[in-house]
Design a protein around this nucleic acid. Structure first.
Length: 693
DNA sequence: AAAAAAT
């Protein structure tokens, strides 16, 4: 029996506020955002933000530097019924006790009808034969016709996609992906397997990560991209090869070989199969950075060059004094330099780029009138919608304090309102690459005036699938514009962007900062594949919030269902859910109405939810960076947390190597269902003091 | 594998 069927009581988490997802800033130019409007909320200003950050909630390490949650969440008031209070309408599962049990409650995946909220993935679409762009078909832009954005955003009146002009950009679109038939997990895709053998499906498709030349449309820029080139043989010296510059310009980023010791020397290591070898993640060279020492207690935000209003808002946000990463990056960013910065999740990166970005935009507009329909001058991109939202929650109040406007540009929601905001004019856009590029291609977003671009989780944005759109977007921005790259795991993977877009960037990292904050207890459980379900049930049977990571969407869904069936309140978060459901589910978890969140790596980076004290990796990550980001969801704000990773015997060595790279010590324990250790790990994590002892 | 645009 579960110990706690109901969500644990205690203080309600105040972090994910979906209100922001719908709302746009109000203000002088902004009576109407375009498109139909629902009831308007008047409390659009930043809500009580005093509790958005918990500063000083515990000294953490030398340097007296407490972590801060990035982009905290404003508390919600309860003026309107929240989703969670409503009867769950489209939940396909009956709520417990309400309905008679049905035998067929758990139809197998194959039998189940498609759910409303599970959009077919893009790849499921039948192949289009209009893939080849034809110039003749394409309407000329700016032809005086009302643009789609002018129309009411009624779904049934928007042109269907078939009617849309074919793009002539000659790049692979999502539609070009090979058709997938895996909407239902096929046996091969099924994460749960009984034999514990690695299969082709388990390994990352390293070799086919690069599109083959034949499949790829010709590039229009004439320059080789990183995807094409086989390393550093493109004739250009890369940073790693280049001799160090003289002291004056030593700011040039240099990449160093990662010299962390490997637990297994290559020679002692038993031979790996090809499949296994390919599973090993790439370790990029580390960026040599100028280490930022503990913050000088005398330095203030004002000293760093931020104006009065901004300083006041930062104070309201709970940032009274700059954290190290902020103390390092703010002045150079205001000065217009390109910056690369590495700082642990929760180290205050959002403010580190957000505040100086606003200051710089403000200065660039000095003496100018705020014009209707002005083009944005700053761009912030993030890999997920949730993260983009979260960044906006921090940046928007800062911007508004000086009369600047932000707008979110991301997919999954109708574009009408976003386009409406752009038509009125905004200064800073925050979003995800897909929708940004979509609007650019539709001629509804003009990036030519962008003078500052930020990439959050920059290394992730340089991975296949992200890199090219990001490059294309940046090429639309003002030439020579300032570029800021931030990530907790910034490494040479960003070289593709650095080489093309950054000029003599300054590189910073916080001294003595490893991802493993010392407040996290890392454990690895070696289990039999068959017992995974049972072990997981025991692990989530606890007080407190549990975040479970799975490798695939289908498995995330399956696990959420399993936990519900076992009597826990569980929700899923992954890309097969529509945006409304994503927002709703994460909010349920944040507010404690769901004890368990089962997520894919969509939740691995950046997303902050208060009080997650256990992270379970139902599927072990294959990349050490993923491990670091996932585990960074707990142990935040000086609290302690625990990360339990489940692996099979087969994967022990691989896991040990991964942990080595992540510089994390974690005991491995072999367990079977019912072993005391499992329930023990579901209990309270050791305190920070106990961990360091 | 997931994510990121749209139906």
């Amino acid at each position: 029996m579960p110990k706690s069927k109901k969500p644990a009581g205690g203080r309600p988490a105040q972090n994910f506020d979906p209100r922001y997802a719908k709302k746009k800033p109000g203000g002088p130019f902004r009576g109407n955002e375009g498109g139909p409007r629902g009831p308007r909320r008047d409390d659009a200003r930043p809500t009580r933000d005093g509790d958005r950050f918990e500063r000083g909630s515990g000294p953490r390490r030398e340097g007296g530097y407490a972590p801060r949650r990035e982009g905290g969440f404003a508390p919600r008031d309860d003026r309107r019924p929240s989703y969670g209070d409503r009867p769950a309408r489209d939940d396909r599962r009956p709520s417990y006790g309400d309905r008679p049990a049905r035998d067929d409650r758990r139809p197998s995946y194959g039998d189940r009808p498609a759910r409303d909220d599970r959009r077919p993935s893009y790849g499921d679409r039948p192949a289009r034969d209009d893939r080849r762009p034809s110039y003749g078909d394409r309407p000329v832009r700016d032809n005086g016709r009302p643009s789609y954005g002018d129309r009411p955003a009624r779904d049934d009146r928007r042109p269907s996609y078939g009617d849309r002009p074919v793009r002539d950009n000659g790049r692979p679109s999502y539609n070009d992906r090979p058709a997938r038939d895996d909407r239902r997990p096929s046996y091969g895709d099924r994460p749960v397997r009984d034999n514990g053998r690695p299969s082709y499906n388990d390994r990352p498709a390293r070799d086919d990560r690069r599109p083959s030349y034949g499949d790829r449309p010709a590039r229009d820029n004439g320059r080789p991209s990183y995807g094409d080139r086989g390393g550093r043989d493109n004739g250009r010296p890369s940073y790693g090869d280049r001799p160090a510059r003289d002291a004056r310009s030593a700011q040039r980023p240099r990449f160093e070989r990662d010299e962390r010791p490997a637990r297994f020397q290559r020679d002692e290591r038993p031979a790996r199969s090809v499949a296994e070898e390919q599973q090993i993640d790439t370790v990029h060279e580390r960026l040599e950075a100028q280490a930022v020492q503990a913050v000088d207690s005398e330095v203030t935000f004002a000293d760093l060059g931020l104006g009065e209003n901004i300083v006041r808002v930062l104070d309201e946000l709970g940032a009274a004094k700059p954290f190290p990463i902020q103390a390092a990056t703010i002045a150079p960013i205001i000065a217009g330099r390109d910056v690369l910065a590495r700082g642990r999740t929760g180290s205050g990166k959002t403010i580190a780029f957000g505040a100086p970005l606003v200051e710089r935009v403000l200065r660039s507009k000095a003496g100018q009138k705020r014009e209707f329909g002005r083009a944005p001058v700053a761009l912030i991109m993030a890999p997920t919608r949730e993260l983009a939202l979260q960044i906006d929650r921090t940046v928007q109040p800062i911007a508004r304090s000086v009369g600047l406007f932000t707008t979110q540009i991301y997919g999954g929601v109708p574009q009408g309102r976003q386009v409406g905001a752009l038509k009125k004019g905004v200064d800073i856009i925050i979003g995800t690459p897909g929708r940004i590029e979509d609007l650019v291609d539709q001629g509804k977003l003009d990036l030519s005036q962008i003078i500052v671009s930020v990439l959050d989780e920059a290394d992730h944005m340089c991975e296949l699938g992200f890199l090219e759109p990001v490059q294309r977007i940046l090429r639309h921005t003002s030439k020579g514009g300032q570029k800021l790259l931030f990530s907790a795991t910034l490494d040479r993977e960003v070289a593709a962007l650095v080489d093309e877009f950054l000029v003599e960037p300054a590189v910073y990292e916080v001294a003595n900062e490893t991802q493993d904050s010392g407040t996290i207890d890392h454990r690895v459980l070696v289990i039999d594949q068959r017992s995974k379900g049972e072990v997981l049930d025991t692990l989530v049977d606890r007080e407190g919030k549990t975040l479970v990571f799975s490798r695939t969407r289908a498995y995330a869904e399956q696990l959420a269902e399993q936990f519900e069936d076992a009597g826990f309140t569980a929700v899923a978060l992954h890309g097969d859910l529509n945006q409304a459901k994503r927002t709703r589910n994460i909010e349920k978890f944040a507010k404690g109405r769901a004890q368990v969140l089962v997520a894919t790596d969509v939740a691995a980076r950046g997303i902050h939810v208060d009080d997650v004290d256990l992270v379970v990796q139902a599927d072990a990550p294959t990349e050490y960076k993923t491990y670091l980001h996932r585990s960074g969801r707990t142990g935040r704000a000086g609290r302690s947390g625990r990360v339990v990773t489940l692996i099979t015997r087969m994967r022990q060595r691989r896991m040990a190597e991964l942990l080595e790279r992540a510089e994390i010590d974690a005991p491995f324990d072999q367990v079977r269902p019912g072993d005391d250790l499992i329930a023990e790990l579901a209990g309270a994590a050791p305190t920070a003091a106990e961990l360091t002892a």
